[in-house]
């Protein structure tokens, strides 16, 4: 239970970083922290103490079936990390472009649109 709670703490920390910091690079770091908090959550879902790799062939001992780790969350995390990488690359390139335009990373100085 504690680990799930820590995941939630990490998620909240990312959200806080995103909301409270003015620097857009720090905002990106906040998003990445949130992303990884969820990845960690998915990994914890699939965790099994003393688990073994889920490979089945003719010689697999049937007793091992109980100890197989669930491979699906790991596949989900891999996909999610790849997506996160794409989002991060686009974010960073946008921040660099913003810096070129404004000469600053401060969101309050960049912000002209009124939302």
């Amino acid at each position: 239970m504690t680990v799930y709670f820590l995941c939630a703490v990490l998620l909240t920390m990312g959200l806080y970083c995103l909301v409270a910091k003015k620097n857009i690079v720090k905002k990106i770091i906040g998003v990445v922290i949130m992303d990884y908090a969820v990845n960690l959550y998915l990994i914890i879902i699939g965790y099994k103490k003393g688990g073994v790799a889920p490979i089945i062939d003719k010689t697999t001992n049937p007793e091992l079936l109980e100890r197989f780790v669930d491979p699906l969350p790991q596949a989900l995390v891999l996909t999610s990390i790849v997506i996160g990488l794409g989002v991060l690359a686009l974010m960073v390139s946008m921040v660099i472009r913003l810096y070129e335009k404004h000469g600053t990373f401060d969101m309050s100085q960049i912000s002209k649109l009124r939302g």
């Binding site: 995103l18 857009i24 686009l90 946008m94 002209k112």
Partner: peptide, 18 residues
């Protein structure tokens, strides 16, 4: 303007995805 709007959209969209 486009970059700022895109960045804002992207941050909030990423939060939604999370």
């Amino acid at each position: 303007d486009e970059l700022e709007a895109g960045f804002k959209y992207m941050i909030l969209g990423s939060v939604a995805s999370v």
